[in-house]
Nucleic acid binder design. Structure first.
Length: 511
RNA sequence: GGCCCGUUCGUCUAGGGGUUAGGACGCCAGGUUUUCAUCCUGGAAACAGGAGUUCGAUUCUCCUACGGGCUACCA
């Protein structure tokens, strides 16, 4: 069996959205599962749409996800160059071969001519198609004499090269996820394979490169399925073996209709890009999963499961496990809508797998970013908070009291739980804690419980007052743990100063 | 319009001629918990519709509907 070689071949027209990343991922998984290579090829044959930085963005995104290409524009390889704009002469050669063999022809029709034909057809509620039935009425080398054609060419007349699609043929695309898909070639038109600007179109460049780069399998989005018969016909015209195809289901907008597109930038509160991207022209910033706080492992897992599943109940997969489990025949056929809730759940699963030290490091970075001064043991904070957050940065919002004394207090709790005797109770407990030398969760809790028992008081009601005074909030991790993390000085300080604030707030609420 | 692809809980999906149609997310209820979260238990929730084939169709076939893609000198 020949070596498995697959490629991811994006067009550098902007940042790759999640659909593109998923395509790259599936290519990678497919290749690695079979011991093959993944190639990155840049399809920049449309010079007008080239966007600065798009190429680098792809490489960076994939690297962030934790994998890489084996060959490509960023690292070279035996089959280079890997940028189509650097391969111009190659395409000219192959286009000429097809012309010489009578399988393609020069077309001199101007855009205006073509548009006129189209509107003419439209008036009759038809669609103009440049094909076996109409090409005879157009201005091309099939109609013109050899001398006329030569004269036009020598005069520098603009021309394109069209592939001569033979009618009445059944073209079958053997697709690894969809099975055989057949097309009647009479439905197809004579596609332009070489543009008047001296560049090939996608179709020519794509199959020439796939052949020259010895690509064994073409795994791409479903939007390419309609042009697959053209590609099959092109391979046949060159008498080359066609690679095997797999057309992946599209990723759909989570709300509304249609496939996910770059313009969706940040639809329904979730990003469609792996990494943040700033559009240089408009200055518009598109959010990225990385910047939103997703871990690469979670993101990768999410991508893998949009359109594929292992057939078991396991949902959490590392990259290595994905390689092991991946099977292209298990790719689903229908388009998938992205579920932000499920994405959050995935991230949470990976967050829980992280050690407290790891989380503490991330938390420190986040605090620095937000310019928050920290004086506590972040590992302990992470240990207490990890089960209540989805993203590391959530810890700061969920428990600001670890970093700053509360300035306001949870209205609902104060209203419902702060009673007339609460202030006195908290003050008594404050006095009690004043004597504690070894200010640990265990000691504090023991003291607290003993006090309650002595005075025949309930655990809950007493606790809420303390919690309000120390954290300002109605919920959170064990209060004694919080006190230990904060330390005696800070805890006592809050207990002493915040009771009167709560009292004042309570009064304010009553009026 | 034409061609092509698709359609199982709200979402991602498993399954496949005879199943109580399974799981996950989310949602709801109960339990645990000082609170919140976690955790545990339970619950609601789906085979687009119609014909046909068959003893039997969610599964196979056809039609319809709906969704999607393509229909450029864009990829």
């Amino acid at each position: 069996m020949t070596k498995v070689r697959v490629r991811y071949a994006p067009s550098p027209t902007g940042p790759q959205h999640v659909g593109g990343i998923r395509t790259a991922l599936y290519n990678y998984l497919f290749a690695k599962k079979l011991g093959g290579d993944l190639i990155l090829r840049i399809e920049d044959t449309d010079q007008g749409r080239f966007v600065e930085g798009a190429e680098e963005y792809i490489v960076e995104s994939v690297k962030w996800c934790g994998f890489d290409f084996d060959e490509g524009v960023h690292k070279g390889g035996k089959f280079g160059p890997y940028r189509q704009s650097d391969r111009k002469e190659i395409y000219v050669k192959y286009a000429n071969q097809l012309i010489d063999e009578g399988k393609a022809y020069y077309a001199f029709d101007s855009s205006d001519d073509l548009n006129a034909k189209r509107s003419e057809a439209e008036a009759e509620k038809k669609t103009f198609k440049y094909d076996a039935f109409t090409r005879g009425g157009m201005k091309n080398s099939l109609v013109l004499s050899a001398e006329e054609t030569k004269a036009l060419l020598e005069a520098g007349e603009a021309y394109t090269v069209r592939f001569k699609m033979e009618p009445d043929q059944n073209i079958v695309v053997d697709d690894m996820v969809r099975g055989n898909v057949s097309f009647n070639s009479s439905e197809l038109d004579d596609k332009i394979i070489f543009k008047s600007d001296g560049m090939p179109t996608y179709h020519l460049a794509n199959i020439v490169d796939d052949h020259l780069m010895e690509i064994s399998h073409v795994i791409r989005g479903e939007e390419w399925l309609p042009s697959a018969p053209l590609h099959v016909a092109l391979y046949a015209a060159f008498e080359w073996d066609s690679p095997k195809f797999a057309h992946l289901p599209l990723l759909m907008k989570p709300t509304g209709k249609g496939k996910l597109s770059k313009r969706d930038g940040d639809i329904g509160g979730f990003p469609v890009f792996p990494l943040e991207w700033t559009d240089k022209a408009s200055g518009e910033v598109f959010k990225g999963y990385k910047e939103e706080g997703y871990s690469p492992e979670a993101f990768l897992n999410i991508m893998a499961f949009l359109g594929w599943n292992p057939g078991t109940e396991q949902e959490l997969f590392s990259l290595e496990e994905l390689v092991e489990a991946f099977d292209i025949s298990r790719v689903v056929k229908s388009g998938a809508k992205f579920d932000p809730d499920k994405a959050r759940w995935f991230n949470q699963q990976y967050l829980w797998k992280k050690s407290d030290a790891e989380l503490a490091e991330e938390l420190a970075e986040e605090l620095a970013k937000q310019e928050i001064v920290n004086q506590v043991d972040l590992e302990k904070v992470a240990a207490q908070m990890k089960e209540r957050v989805v993203f590391t940065k959530d810890i700061i919002d969920a428990a600001p009291y670890f970093f700053v004394s509360p300035s306001d207090f949870d209205q609902k709790s104060v209203k419902k739980k702060w009673k007339d005797h609460s202030a006195e109770l908290v003050n008594n407990l404050t006095a009690l804690f004043e004597d504690v030398e070894d200010f640990t969760s265990l000691v504090l809790e023991t003291k607290f419980k003993a006090y309650l028992e002595e005075n025949e008081l309930g655990f809950g009601p007493a606790m809420i007052g303390l919690r309000l005074a120390i954290t300002g909030m109605g919920g959170g991790p064990s209060l004694f743990e919080i006190a230990e993390i904060l330390g005696k000085e800070e805890t006592m300080d809050r207990l002493k100063t915040n009771v009167s604030k709560i009292e004042a707030f309570k009064l304010e609420l009553a009026s």
